[in-house]
Amino acid sequence: MMDLWVPLVFGLFKIGVLVAVIFLSIKSHRDGEKEEKRKKPADSMQQPSTPLMPRSLN
């Protein structure tokens, strides 16, 4: 029973790190979407002066 604490502590630490990484990755993804949403209305007002692709390729 005395040797059980080492894998238990490491296992809990591993799960804690995994939860933190998942939380931060979801938060980062959501913050990126919010930033894109915020920039999109400002970008939609500016029309490109030249087409991105030549007419022959459309």
Results as ranks from 00 to 15, higher is better:
residue 1 M to A: 06
residue 2 M to Y: 01
residue 2 M to S: 02
residue 2 M to G: 00
residue 3 D to E: 03
residue 3 D to W: 02
residue 3 D to M: 04
residue 4 L to Y: 09
residue 5 W to Y: 01
residue 5 W to D: 00
residue 5 W to P: 00
residue 7 P to R: 02
residue 7 P to G: 02
residue 7 P to I: 01
residue 8 L to C: 03
residue 8 L to P: 00
residue 8 L to V: 02
residue 8 L to G: 02
residue 9 V to I: 08
residue 10 F to I: 06
residue 10 F to N: 06
residue 11 G to L: 04
residue 11 G to V: 03
residue 11 G to P: 03
residue 12 L to V: 03
residue 12 L to G: 03
residue 12 L to F: 02
residue 13 F to K: 04
residue 13 F to S: 04
residue 13 F to N: 02
residue 13 F to L: 11
residue 13 F to M: 09
residue 14 K to D: 02
residue 14 K to R: 14
residue 14 K to F: 05
residue 15 I to K: 01
residue 16 G to D: 00
residue 16 G to E: 00
residue 16 G to T: 00
residue 17 V to T: 13
residue 17 V to K: 14
residue 17 V to R: 15
residue 18 L to K: 06
residue 18 L to G: 04
residue 18 L to T: 08
residue 18 L to E: 06
residue 19 V to A: 14
residue 19 V to D: 11
residue 19 V to K: 11
residue 20 A to L: 12
residue 20 A to H: 10
residue 20 A to T: 10
residue 20 A to K: 09
residue 20 A to D: 08
residue 21 V to G: 04
residue 21 V to R: 09
residue 22 I to W: 02
residue 22 I to K: 06
residue 23 F to P: 02
residue 24 L to M: 11
residue 24 L to D: 06
residue 25 S to D: 07
residue 26 I to W: 05
residue 26 I to P: 05
residue 26 I to F: 07
residue 28 S to R: 15
residue 29 H to D: 15
residue 30 R to D: 06
residue 30 R to S: 08
residue 31 D to G: 10
residue 32 G to W: 14
residue 32 G to A: 13
residue 32 G to K: 13
residue 32 G to P: 10
residue 33 E to M: 13
residue 33 E to C: 07
residue 34 K to C: 04
residue 34 K to R: 12
residue 34 K to T: 05
residue 35 E to V: 03
residue 35 E to G: 01
residue 36 E to D: 04
residue 36 E to S: 07
residue 36 E to W: 05
residue 36 E to F: 07
residue 36 E to N: 07
residue 37 K to R: 14
residue 37 K to C: 10
residue 37 K to L: 13
residue 37 K to T: 11
residue 37 K to A: 13
residue 38 R to T: 07
residue 38 R to N: 07
residue 38 R to G: 01
residue 38 R to W: 03
residue 38 R to Y: 06
residue 39 K to V: 12
residue 39 K to L: 15
residue 39 K to F: 12
residue 39 K to G: 04
residue 40 K to Y: 15
residue 40 K to V: 10
residue 40 K to T: 15
residue 41 P to L: 09
residue 42 A to M: 15
residue 42 A to Y: 15
residue 43 D to M: 11
residue 43 D to E: 10
residue 43 D to G: 01
residue 43 D to I: 07
residue 44 S to L: 13
residue 44 S to P: 07
residue 44 S to V: 11
residue 44 S to F: 08
residue 45 M to P: 00
residue 45 M to G: 05
residue 45 M to S: 09
residue 46 Q to L: 14
residue 46 Q to E: 11
residue 46 Q to I: 15
residue 46 Q to P: 03
residue 46 Q to A: 13
residue 46 Q to H: 14
residue 46 Q to F: 13
residue 47 Q to E: 08
residue 47 Q to N: 08
residue 47 Q to Y: 04
residue 47 Q to P: 01
residue 49 S to R: 06
residue 49 S to P: 00
residue 49 S to I: 06
residue 51 P to D: 08
residue 51 P to W: 05
residue 51 P to Y: 08
residue 51 P to L: 07
residue 51 P to Q: 08
residue 52 L to G: 14
residue 53 M to K: 13
residue 53 M to Y: 12
residue 53 M to I: 14
residue 53 M to L: 15
residue 54 P to H: 14
residue 55 R to S: 13
residue 55 R to A: 14
residue 56 S to W: 01
residue 57 L to D: 07
residue 57 L to G: 02
residue 57 L to E: 10
